[in-house]
Design a protein around this nucleic acid. Structure first.
Lengths: 239, 239
DNA sequence: ATTTTGGTGCCAAATTTTGGCACCTTTTTC
DNA sequence: GAAAAAGGTGCCAAAATTTGGCACCAAAAT
């Protein structure tokens, strides 16, 4: 596993579990104790405040306040945020208004409203280029939101994904696929994935997927998705 | 020299010089031609738009619009922003309110429990990741924020959209298209649209679109997007 | 006193990055 | 039409970095 991905995994784990020991983390991310210790060091260098306590019942704890973050929001959420700037100004009585102001101030500082060139720049401002693929849950049907991180992990860490799928005729199959892209055809969302068992690409409607789980330890490479000659996930794949 | 630093150095150099050759860059950053080529590949993967031209007088050129920026917000600030958006949505004063539901639904679910857990859940919701080095924002252009809803209207109200598009070879065209879908191939986004002038579907990389505007009064019908037999924009159309 | 847990220094093994090379394509110049 | 200048790819061995294991220390709880 990549060092970068491991750092992410460690932060995620610390956020989720509240407190863990180094050995737990090591087991979790599949690295040695020594490596995790080095990673913790790196993360501290990067500004994460990680409290540690020695002795029985001790462990590591991530100070949530220290997590200065790149906000990864959906396009829609970015729109919503930016379009609410003016309204936010008018409505000082909103909860956490001052904190929101602080956040907006930073966004605006990075992107003065009178200097906005186009949509692209706005999206960049919130680093939407790297957003997680699952923003819109409205069409996810009966899927348990708690299962969503499985998809995120599958995309971000490039793990294979297993899920149950009910096709248009109601037939249930279990798939193990390589998630390659998301396709939004409002109001429906599709997962575009390579299905090794069928040796081909398949589209899966998100609301027909259930019981997704990432297959830890698996990994896959990006493929040319069959959407057109000018569509390419990686610039180093031949166009 | 660190790979990260070298990437930064290359971007800086390209921004400063306007256009350079690979050999120039290699000399400048003290690496081999091969390595610089690999770096250029990496940078393109990261979303930088780097035009290249072979032959005498050719070289590399960085599209300033493609320079990624990152909003660094504290957890509390993100939290506050989203809460504010939620409040606005309640007040029905915000466009895109329903789409902003994505994160908000999860946040609202978390609200009753104690604050610390809220924040952790929120982080999971937004999948906050690592900090990225803040890039220079100084040369961002100007545009009226009022043009932002262009995409929104085009998708939700099914208006045609006009924009300037720069293709892979740098050629600029003005398009008037019918936006049909979005395709996410992390980290790149594509607009999938029907181009009446070409009587066919076309893919547009979002970062190559500029000056979007909805064509009021126009309208279009949904089409079967050419992505597979099982992909259909409407759930009530026959599969 | 023992156990649990964080933390450091060191070194060899494993892994990744790098540079060099041959060779290809496109474009301009002569 | 040939030559030169530029971007780009594949391959491999050398170089550099990362990793894991080990010994060992310090603090806290039992």
């Amino acid at each position: 596993m990549n060092i970068r991905l491991r750092h992410d995994a460690i932060v995620r784990s610390l956020r989720r579990s509240g407190t863990s020991t180094i050995d737990e983390l090591a087991r979790e991310v599949g690295a040695s104790r020594r490596t995790v210790l080095r990673d913790i060091c790196d993360l501290r260098d990067q500004g994460f405040v990680i409290h540690s306590e020695a002795g029985r019942g001790g462990g590591l704890q991530l100070d949530p306040q220290s997590v200065q973050t790149t906000a990864r929001l959906s396009v829609a959420e970015v729109f919503a945020l930016l379009l609410s700037v003016a309204a936010m100004r008018a409505a000082r009585s909103l909860p956490f208004a001052d904190l929101a102001d602080a956040g907006l101030a930073r966004i605006e500082k990075a992107l003065p409203s009178d200097k906005i060139r186009d949509l692209r720049l706005l999206l960049e401002c919130l680093h939407v280029g790297q957003l997680s693929p699952l923003q819109d849950l409205s069409d996810m049907g009966a899927m348990d939101p708690a299962l969503l991180p499985a998809f995120e992990a599958a995309f971000l860490d490039r793990h294979c994904l297993r899920f149950r799928y009910r096709d248009a005729r109601g037939r249930i199959t279990v798939r193990e696929v390589e998630p390659q892209a998301m396709l939004i055809l409002p109001p429906l969302w599709y997962l575009v994935a390579w299905d090794p068992a069928r040796d081909d690409f398949r589209h899966f409607r998100m609301d027909r997927i259930s019981a997704p789980e990432t297959l830890e330890g698996t990994s896959f490479r990006r493929r040319r998705v069959p959407f057109g000659d000018d569509v390419c996930p990686y610039s180093d794949l031949p166009l």
